[in-house]
């Protein structure tokens, strides 16, 4: 995995469009999942993915891979999603409406509408830091150490946030979803 990523980054730095496509296709699913979980807005998630990929592309020729490529991209997605959330440009109402739309659109996920709505609503109620830790670990597939390194936080902090997040999700979903 790492070896392939290093090769891809080398080709990417040389301006190889094929390498960029491969990187995108390889990690799109994880990155989009993280963005959706942190934004609860399908179009905003796509915008964030777009911005992150284009921003990554702007570093072609001088990009230096430290750690894992997926970890780097996933943290970029999480940071940008946090910025979007903090900007408050989007009205809360429209966010709620979009959230409901996402919840109702069961065809987009492998989960039925009701259970999906419950999961999305529960995630929305998590504090941002906990949601970020849960999204990056579960949906982004990043290890705690990787999240901690990329976020410049201690591994204990990240693990604690994840544990508290999962605990809260469990309490929120208890009774609504068969756990």
């Amino acid at each position: 995995m790492r070896l392939e990523d290093r090769w891809l980054v080398r080709r990417f730095n040389a301006g190889d469009a094929g390498a960029l496509r491969r990187i995108y296709e390889k990690y799109k699913s994880d990155l989009l999942s993280v963005a959706r979980a942190l934004l609860n807005d399908a179009s905003a998630a796509e915008d964030v993915l777009h911005d992150v990929v284009v921003s990554f592309a702007s570093q072609a020729g001088r990009f230096v891979l430290r750690g894992s490529l997926k970890g780097y991209l996933a943290i970029c997605v999480a940071n940008r999603a946090r910025n979007v959330n903090r900007q408050g440009a989007r009205l809360e109402l429209s966010k709620r409406a979009e959230s409901r739309r996402m919840q109702a659109d069961a065809s987009e996920s492998a989960l039925d509408g009701e259970r999906r709505s419950a999961v999305v609503a529960a995630m929305e109620q998590l504090p941002e830091a906990q949601r970020r830790a849960v999204a990056l670990h579960v949906l982004g597939g990043l290890r705690f150490r990787e999240i901690a390194q990329q976020s410049d936080e201690s591994i204990n902090t990240v693990q604690s946030r994840y544990r508290y997040g999962l605990k809260k999700l469990r309490s929120l979903l208890n009774g609504q979803v068969d756990l």
Binding site: A110, L111, R115, V120, M123, V134, L169, V177
Partner: peptide, 8 residues
Amino acid sequence: LLLRAYRP
């Protein structure tokens, strides 16, 4: 559940 809810 999270994976099934958010994964495309």
